[in-house]
């Protein structure tokens, strides 16, 4: 088990390195390939109509004239040890972990990421609870009563659910349950949990349900397919043959086996979402990480976009790791085989 954990940790570190390379390539290499020179790139990192001096300073601070390997080294070491943005005349210190520095607002990105994380986490956790409970139970029921009215209705709803863009269902739910029936607050109202837990939940119900609807639909389809496969397996027949009650067969033998692939997907989805449920946050104007990135794109504040992207990638890698370890804990075959 310890060797296994060690190997997964190593794989996670490698993955993180690869991801950092890709993120770096998108932000610094790709524009150069497309024909932007160092000055042009520096201008993009300032984000307001810049003076030649400002461009020269940012170019110097980000080492855009240096070889790409040096730039990458500065970027990665900044994440671990912090970074000094030296313009030649003055130095901006960005403490570790340095997720970038916005030359537009003259602030470090990292503290702002931390500030917005609770909003995104609130959204993601609440929605995840709803979609797991609803999606998995509908999937199981549909599989057990295959072909019934419930099964058909659930699968039609699921198909509609995966075909609906979240920014449309979000708007419709706002129109219905905030405007025509003023039960929930309009978009843009968010109360932190620490201030008032009740108002917090109240302000998040619509985003939770909207976000959960899409995922519940996907998970219901996945669970149904998984359960149908599993319930046809020999070990289910064996369990029934030895006289176990159907409830035990379904819950202990069927569901447990059918759930393992769902755990994998859930880990990835949840990790991605912690990095910003971009569309939901934009639709409901929630001040989370996703909205942070969207506003930064609109305001040409590239360092912020870079910071959020890297932060999200970090969550994805961590989620991958947690899923792998959970898997090994739940299924001994994994750690022996690996």
């Amino acid at each position: 088990m310890i060797t296994y954990i060690f190997r997964r940790l190593l794989a996670g570190a490698v993955l993180l390195l690869v991801v950092s390379m890709v993120v770096f390539a998108i932000f610094f290499l790709l524009p150069r390939v497309a024909g932007v020179d160092a000055d042009g790139l520096a201008a993009r990192y300032i984000g307001k109509s810049p003076s030649p001096e400002a461009i020269a300073a940012v170019k110097e601070r980000l080492n855009l004239d240096e070889p790409i390997t040096v730039q990458y080294y500065e970027f990665v070491s900044g994440l671990v040890m912090g970074q000094d943005y030296d313009s030649g005349t003055d130095v901006i210190r960005c403490d570790a972990p340095c997720f970038g520095y916005s030359f537009k607002t003259n602030t470090e990105v990292w503290p702002q990421l931390l500030e917005r994380l609770p909003v995104t986490a609130s959204l993601a956790i609440g929605a995840a609870v709803i979609w797991l409970v609803v999606g998995v139970s509908i999937g199981v029921l549909s599989a057990l009563r295959r072909g019934s009215v419930l099964d058909r209705a659930a699968m039609i709803t699921a198909l509609a659910g995966v075909s609906l863009p979240i920014f449309f269902t979000g708007l419709v739910s706002l129109a219905l349950f905030s405007y025509y029936l003023p039960i929930f607050p309009p978009g843009g109202s968010y109360t932190p949990f620490t201030e008032n837990p009740l108002a917090w939940a109240h302000s998040l119900v619509l985003p939770w349900v909207t976000l959960a609807f899409l995922y519940a639909a996907m998970y219901a389809r996945l669970t149904r397919a998984g359960m149908l496969d599993t319930m046809g397996e020999d070990f289910i027949r064996t369990a029934r043959a030895k006289g176990l009650p159907e409830r035990t067969v379904v819950a202990k033998h069927g569901l447990r086996a059918a759930l393992t692939p769902i755990i994998t997907i859930f880990g990835l989805d949840f990790g991605l979402m912690l990095g910003g449920a971009v569309l939901t946050e934009s639709t409901f104007s929630l001040p989370g990480l996703g909205k942070f990135a969207v506003d930064a794109i609109r305001g040409n504040d590239l360092p912020v976009v870079l910071g959020v992207t890297m932060f999200t990638a970090l969550f994805v890698v961590i989620a991958n790791l947690v899923v792998d370890l959970l898997y090994a804990w739940a299924d001994p075959r994994v750690r022996v085989g690996a």
Partner: peptide, 16 residues
Amino acid sequence: AFPLLLFAMAMVGVLP
């Protein structure tokens, strides 16, 4: 495992 939407946004943002 990549955050696709963010990557896409970033790419559109950095390209001239």
